[in-house]
């Protein structure tokens, strides 16, 4: 059952992204470009989505567990650290250049053009690079701590 739900929620998400216009870089960049002919679409997408999640998550978090799983998998990290700010800033640079964030870039596989074949491999390379760098720094920590540390927990948000 959880696998069917993953497929169906992915389907709704992808349809939502496509109808919202977020797979069109000119609409995304039209929002980010405040000095050009400003397009407020992204505000409507984010506003619409967050209005739903603020209300629903408030209610869901009161439940003892999800319907088809044993626990809610949510990051316990509360700290606002350098990784969060630097990572978000790097993402903002790439987003502001290209008009793509990860969701629309993947959804665009449904109507691929040359931009997808450049952006997606580069996106995956970026994930791989981060995995490589964080594993390497983790190895150093393990050495320092005399092998007491294990792998860091996987990201659960984002």
């Amino acid at each position: 059952m959880p696998n069917i739900i993953a497929l169906v929620t992915g389907l709704i998400f992808g349809f939502g992204l496509a109808i919202s216009g977020m797979t069109h870089t000119e609409i995304v960049l039209g929002f980010l470009d405040v000095a050009g002919e400003w397009n407020p679409s992204l505000l409507f997408v984010l506003g619409g989505a967050v209005s739903v999640t603020v209300a629903s998550f408030y209610w869901i978090r009161k439940l003892p567990k999800p319907v088809f799983a044993t626990t809610f998998i949510v990051t316990e990290i509360k700290k606002i650290d350098r990784s969060l700010v630097i990572g978000s800033a790097l993402f903002g640079i790439g987003w502001g250049i290209s008009g793509y964030c990860p969701g629309p870039a993947i959804a665009l596989l449904a109507a691929p053009n040359w931009e997808v074949w450049v952006f997606l491999p580069a996106l995956l390379f970026g994930y791989g690079l981060h995995e490589y760098v964080s594993k390497k720094s983790q190895v150093n920590i393990v050495n320092l701590n005399d092998n007491q540390t294990s792998r860091p927990e996987q990201p659960t948000c984002g």
């Binding site: 984010l46 739903v52 949510v74 993402f91 790439g94 290209s98």
Partner: peptide
């Protein structure tokens, strides 16, 4: 465009989230 892709991948991995994880879901929480 390729440089942007690497930045988006590395940045969202480092920040543990993008427009959906931090934007839609994180703000929702």
């Amino acid at each position: 465009l390729a440089a942007a892709g690497v930045l988006v991948g590395f940045g969202t991995a480092l920040a543990r989230g993008c427009t959906s994880g931090h934007g839609v879901c994180g703000l929702g929480r």
